[in-house]
């Protein structure tokens, strides 16, 4: 019986080569969320190690990539918890403009857009352009730290508002406000740096 079990583990095991091909994907994922090359490299390295060492735990029910992403997600959440202990969301707004400032700058007093969002045409074309992704990376980096943290938890890690609130100890309203601010600033940046020039 023991033999049976080990051969089953071998069949489902994951080789180092197999996980290595996902390093680029995992790095982009970690970097968007953590915004720090060293921390991102650390969590990706730990993920790949954990995957190879615990390869027999790969059930084969999901793809290797989904499985790796799951491991990475846990490691990133640990990091985010540490980051938010060091930089709590609701304290020390000094390194970034307050919510009101960012949104106020984009709207007139009567609630109209200061500059109405432009027609981006068929923005899907940009996705095929390597230079668009450089702009995208730059705009992501330009987002204020805490705003980006919430935005990436929602869009990269695909956590629900409830999960984000729980992790960061903020209210749902606060979370929606930060996501709104994040999307407005990403929009503004992409329009100014990319779509405005096409």
């Amino acid at each position: 019986m023991a033999d049976n079990n080990s051969s089953r583990a071998d069949a489902l095991g994951v080789s180092p080569g197999e996980v290595e091909q996902f390093r680029g994907y995992l790095m982009r994922y970690a970097l968007l969320q953590l915004r720090d090359q060293t921390s991102a490299e650390d969590v990706v390295q730990e993920t790949l190690l954990a995957a190879v060492e615990g390869g027999d735990r790969f059930s084969g029910k999901s793809t290797v990539k989904t499985w790796l992403t799951g491991i990475l997600k846990h490691k990133i959440i640990d990091q985010v918890r540490r980051q938010s202990r060091e930089q709590p969301l609701l304290q020390g707004e000094d390194d970034e403009c307050s919510e009101a400032d960012v949104v106020d700058a984009l709207f007139r007093a009567d609630g109209h857009w200061q500059n109405f969002p432009a027609d981006w045409g068929d923005p899907g074309n940009a996705l095929e352009n390597k230079r668009f992704w450089e702009t995208f990376e730059m705009c992501a980096r330009l987002m204020p730290v805490k705003t980006a943290r919430v935005f990436m938890m929602r869009e990269v890690m695909e956590l629900s508002t409830e999960e984000i609130c729980k992790e960061l100890d903020i209210t749902a309203t606060n979370c929606w406000v930060m996501l709104h601010r994040a999307r407005l600033s990403l929009r503004e940046c992409l329009e100014t740096k990319w779509f405005g020039r096409v």
């Binding site: 994907y25 982009r28 981006w120 923005p123 899907g124 940009a126 996705l127 869009e155 990403l186 929009r187």
Partner: peptide
């Protein structure tokens, strides 16, 4: 439209070179 695009762009960014 731009919100929908930005959401899909994040996903595409992650999948890019795979």
């Amino acid at each position: 439209r731009q919100l929908a695009f930005m959401r899909s762009a994040v996903k595409r960014y992650l999948e890019r070179d795979d």
